[in-house]
């Protein structure tokens, strides 16, 4: 009886507490599309680093922050935008124009222009933003994690 009652109290506290700590909060903002660049300013087949401001929901705050993306124009209506962090440990990588590949300075992972892993410890291709092209503008949505298909 004593143990049973304490068990009930413990459960009635542990359950809400774990839900409180482990469940994701309800989202109050739906995802937005942010205008990142003019399609005309992107060069075909060569990645361009675009800098834009994006609203990020951060707990009880919504902050507008500077974000970058590597945009590669495939055609006038088709673009890929890569999230600027290496999929290994999150370092910022850069574009090596001579070798025509992305190079991460931390552990020398290299990626092809469309984000595939060429060498190094990166476990999967670079993550991509959701993209949309409207009226000649490149719109970016949220970052979607790439498949584990390295």
């Amino acid at each position: 009886m004593i143990y049973g009652l304490w068990g009930l109290i413990g459960a009635a506290l542990a359950l809400p507490a774990s839900i409180y700590l482990l469940f994701p909060p309800r989202l109050r903002k739906r995802e937005e599309w942010t205008e990142a660049a003019d399609m005309g300013k992107l060069t075909a087949k060569t990645p361009t680093e675009v800098v834009f401001r994006q609203n990020r929901v951060d707990g009880w705050k919504i902050t507008s922050e500077r974000t970058t993306a590597w945009a590669i124009k495939i055609s006038d209506t088709e673009v890929i935008a890569l999230a600027p962090q290496c999929t290994h440990l999150g370092c910022a990588y850069h574009w090596d124009d001579g070798k025509r590949q992305f190079l991460c300075p931390c552990h020398t992972s290299t990626f092809s222009p469309d984000g595939k892993v060429l060498s190094g410890p990166a476990p999967r291709p670079l993550d991509r933003y959701e993209v949309k092209v409207e009226n000649g503008k490149l719109l970016l949505g949220k970052v979607v994690e790439s498949e584990n298909a390295a």
Binding site: P16, A17, I19, Y20, P24, R26, R28, G59
Partner: peptide, 30 residues
């Protein structure tokens, strides 16, 4: 538990408590 989601400065305190009560799952109960 509340302190894990609460910012103890005026203004922020209000917004974070509101966040606890309206957005954090189970926050209102706690």
């Amino acid at each position: 538990l509340l302190a894990f989601n609460y910012a103890p400065t005026p203004g922020e305190a209000y917004n974070s408590l509101r966040y606890i009560m309206t957005e954090v799952t189970g926050g209102r109960l706690i």
